[in-house]
Structure formats: C-alpha cells, structure tokens
Design a binder for these strands. Structure first.
Lengths: 118, 118
DNA sequence: TTGACATATTCCCATATAAGCATGTAATTT
DNA sequence: AAATTACATGCTTATATGGGAATATGTCAA
C-alpha cells in the first residue's frame, strides 16, 4: 500500500508545512486566495491545490462573493489533533521534572565536591 | 517535488495511524518490539519499519538489553505539535460560543412563535 | 558449533504526492 | 463583445511511501 492520501484526515493534511502556514494565516479572519498567494509568496495554483486538500478534510471553509472566494480556517477540525497530543502531556511533564531533578542533584553534588577540574 | 519524507519531522511521522497507535502504546512504559507486534496485531517487519521512522524523528527512544530492544515514546517530541494546535484553541472556542448562541436564539424564537409546523 | 529467538533490512510494487506550467472557467469591467 | 481579474484544474515528472515476503543480523542457550 502507498502512503495514505493527504485528504484522508487532518493529520495527513497538516503534515505539509505550507498547509500549516495557510491554516495559521487564515485562523484569525477570512481571506481571498490572492491575499494568501501574496502573503505567503506561493504560486497561485499551488495555493488553490493546498486549499482543495484543506477543504476536503474540513480544515477550511469557503464563502463565495462575486469572483472572490474567502477562505477561513475551521479551527474545530484541529481540536482532535490537540486532544490526541494532549494524551502525552503528563508524560513530558514527568520527563521535565526528572531532568530538573537531575540538574538539581548535580548542583548539590558540586557543593559537596566543588570544581573537580581545577 | 514529491511529498516530504515521513522522517522529515514529527508531523509527517505521526500522519500514519499505525504510528500513532504505537506512540500511544509506548507512552506509559517501554516495551520490546515483540509486545508491540502482539498487542497491535501488526507484522513484525512493519513494526520495525514504523519504529525506525519514529526513531529518526526522535519520537521514540530505544534501550537495548540482550536480544531485546525496549522502545518508549519520547513525549517531549510531541509537545511542539501540541503547541501548534493550541494556536487555534481560542478560535474553536469562539466558534462553539457562536453555535451555542444561535441554538439559544432558536429556542427563544420558538417561544415567540411556537410549533410553526402544526 | 548449532539452533532458536528477537529484531532489522532488502526487494518489489501499486499508489500518491507537490511543484511547475499551461489551460479552463466564471465573474467583472470597459 | 472583448479584455481583465480571480481561481481552479489538468498535465508531467521525480520521489517517497507501506505492505508482503524473504532474508540478514545479532544474541542467547544447549
């Protein structure tokens, strides 16, 4: 089997760095395609294709107005990723605590036997 | 250009659902490869390859002991993804509030003009 | 040493990109 | 109607994938 399609879910869609930039850019407020092209300095067809992927997985919403299409990030579609990564929060906290403990132990060891290199 | 390598960063590595399962399974405590194979019911070469990808991007750590290799999730490597998704938290909260407001408005409209279909 | 066990690596293949470029389509203006 | 603007789509190409099967590597045990 090949790699899963970029359009199969939010995780795959967001793996592409340019799509993450687009999502960040469109989070605050909606923008027409041309502004995305100008702001992120990408080719217009490239932006259209990225937006197509993001649309298919529900990460952006479109509003048509004349010949402009205003895209905006649908933040709710990112929430499941946030929840998944949150699973690991307690573990990296534990890891940080242990790193801190080891650092503090080194300091107290240095007080016992200071400056071993001199 | 083709799609970025799965080994290019955590976002790409985690796009594969099986790798996410492996990370969840290895978050709590380290496990030898054989247990991953048994628990997730995957082929052993497949697990080894997935672990290789996860190792390259620092999402798992290995401890060798005889002929066993104990893998464990390196939760700290997931934190950047958590931070990136957090950017959007305030926006989905706003969206939920507006959904709630519209729902409440519908209820009060119904009180004004109840049961329009009867 | 030989064999059993645990894990990694290699080869093949169907599939899916993303970029670049050209072209198509729809709405607007002149 | 013709020209212009704003996007979308189609094409080609280099590249990477994940699964399956076979095989290699490394470690322990008898």
């Amino acid at each position: 089997m090949a790699r899963a399609a970029t359009t199969s879910d939010a995780f795959n869609a967001v793996a592409e760095p340019r799509r993450r930039e687009i999502l960040s850019y469109l989070a605050m407020r909606e923008r027409p395609v041309g502004e995305i092209v100008a702001a992120l300095r990408l080719d217009q067809p490239s932006v259209s294709k990225h937006l197509g992927v993001l649309r298919k997985v529900g990460l952006v919403r479109v509003r048509c107005e004349g010949r402009h299409k205003f895209y905006q990030t649908n933040a709710a579609a990112i929430q499941p990723m946030h929840e998944w990564t949150r699973e690991f929060e307690k573990f990296w906290q534990h890891q940080l605590i242990r790193v801190k403990e080891r650092a503090e132990k080194r300091v107290s060891d240095d007080r016992q036997k200071p400056n071993p290199h001199s």
